[in-house]
Structures are given as C-alpha cells and as structure tokens.
C-alpha cells in the first residue's frame, strides 16, 4: 500500500468532503454500533471467550458455515458469471424477464425462501421425489445448506459482473481477434482481466452474506447439533440463555474472519489492477 510512490497529480475535486462524509456515515451507521458487539464479547473474561468459540459444537458449526458458504460462493461465481454473460451479450426471447428474476432472492424474505426451498427438496417435494430415490438427499443435509446459500448469493455475482461486462470495451476484443487471437485467448487475456475484479467482488460478497445467513438456512438445514447446525443458530441459542457475551463472541470470530477475507481480496484486486496499469504504461 505504498501509495505515495504511485500517486500522480489528481485534479479531480471533492476528495475532502466526500471522504469526510464517507468516514462520518460509515462510523455512525456501522463502526460505532459494531464496537458495541466487540465490547460485549469481551465483557466477560478472555477465558470465557476462548472457551465459547472452541467448544466442539461451535467448531463444528464454524466448519459447516465456512465450508458451505465457500462452496456456495464458488457455485454462485460460476453460475452467476454465465448468467451475466448471457444477459449482456446475447439476445433471446424472455431476456428481460430473466434479467428481472435475478434479483428475486433479494426481494423474497429469507424465511420464505427457506420454506419454499425446503418444500421443493423434501420427500414429497417437486424435486425431492426424484432426487431421494436416487440417493441424493438435500433437505436437512449440508447439501441443502449449500443450495440455500447459493440462492442467496447468486444475485451478488450477477449484479457485480453485469455492469462491468456491459461497460467493457468491445473494441479491445475486436483488436485482439483481428490480430489473430483465438477465442480462448481473447477470453483469458482480454475479458478475464477486465471482469476478474468484479467477479472476485461478487464472490466475496456472496461468501460474506452466506456466512451470516440465518432465515433461509434454518428451515432446510435440520439443525442437528454437530451435523447441520450453522453458526448463526448457535448465536440465537446463546441469546436464549441470556448469554450475550457468548453470542457476540461467536459473532466476532465470524465477523473478523469475513473482514480479513474481504480485506485480502480488496488488496489483491488493487495489486492486479496496478500491474495492469503498469503494463499499459
């Protein structure tokens, strides 16, 4: 982050006020309120904190939550990129409708999504009645958790990639093709670097959002301790015992992890962008 060496003279206005407002609003809405959670989590002893977050049940829940969110983020990235690509590049009947439908997971209350998904995948559901005889169990297994989280995360990827893809300079691809680049080369050398950062952003958001998701997952997961119990559910059960310190301790670990991940991805993006700019220069 040695920005000083890279800095070029910038004549654009508004840095001061815009930064000031950003930091002020960020502090007011996010940072100050969140500090209440951190302070609460350390309101009892450090030993209690460690004991809480390393209990076998909590570790099992972390494994499920992080694992399922990661897989769901990957699935969302692949599928989401494909959907964004098709929506931006091709014309086909029903495209406008398809475009509109992408946002539905946002609009549907998560509990409704959970109920709807569960009803699809149980034994008498539309999909469950075919899948279960084949030995594929979705409802009340970690696979169900992944599906619910993919449903939640998919729009993040599509909506991150779509504007960048739409904005991408088609002439670059033209030039590359006319210079004899193959389709695969165009994709890896021109399109991927252009879309890559936004895809990564989409993945990170889908992952982070999946990690905290509660409403839709508890319906489809089955909530069996050590097996299909997600970390946010443990937060709720801690609260049920008026153990605010324990609940916030579990939350803080998730929060810090997803923050570190997001920070890492943002820094990585920065670096790749810098290389690209250096290449151009």
């Amino acid at each position: 982050m040695a920005a000083g060496t890279f800095r070029k003279a910038n004549i654009l206005p508004g840095f001061g006020p815009a930064l000031g407002y950003t930091v002020f609003y960020l502090s007011l809405i996010v940072l100050i309120p969140l500090s209440a959670v951190f302070l609460k989590s350390v309101s009892s002893t450090w030993a209690h904190f460690v004991e809480t977050v390393t209990a076998p049940k909590v570790l099992a829940a972390y494994r499920l939550s992080f694992g399922a969110s990661f897989v769901a983020g990957l699935v969302s990235s692949v599928v989401g990129f494909l959907i964004a690509w098709v929506l931006v590049r091709y014309e086909f009947p029903g495209k406008a409708l398809a475009d509109a439908l992408v946002d539905l997971p946002f609009a549907l209350p998560t509990a409704v999504a959970g109920i709807a998904l569960t009803s699809l995948y149980t034994e008498n559901g539309w999909l469950g009645r075919y899948l279960i005889p084949m030995g594929i169990k979705v409802a009340f297994t970690p696979l169900g958790v992944v599906i619910a989280l993919t449903f939640i995360g998919l729009p993040f990827v599509v909506r991150s990639v779509q504007p960048v893809l739409a904005d991408a300079d088609r002439e670059l691809e033209e030039a590359a093709t006319s210079l004899g680049a193959t389709r695969v080369q165009v994709f890896t050398k021109v399109i991927a670097p252009m879309v890559g950062p936004s895809l990564l952003t989409g993945f990170a958001m889908a992952f982070a959002r999946a990690l905290g998701e509660y409403g839709s997952v508890i319906f489809i997961s089955g909530n069996l301790p050590m097996k299909t119990e997600i970390a946010p559910l443990l937060i709720v059960t801690k609260l049920e015992q008026y153990d605010y310190a324990g609940a916030t301790a579990i939350a803080v670990v998730m929060l810090v992890t997803s923050f570190v991940l997001l920070l890492g991805i943002n820094m990585f993006q920065r670096r790749t962008r810098r290389y690209m700019e250096a290449d151009e220069a």
């Binding site: 996010v30 969140l34 959670v37 998560t110 990170a204 958001m205 982070a208 959002r209 990690l211 905290g212 998701e213 509660y214 409403g215 970390a231 946010p232 937060i235 709720v236 609260l239 609940a247 916030t248 939350a251 998730m254 929060l255 997803s258 923050f259 997001l262």
Partner: peptide
C-alpha cells in the same frame, strides 16, 4: 463491506 458479513441476528 462489513454489514454483508454480519449475521442478521447480530
């Protein structure tokens, strides 16, 4: 990005 990573319960 933080609010994305915060569980709704929290």
């Amino acid at each position: 990005d933080i609010p994305f990573g915060v569980s709704p319960v929290i």
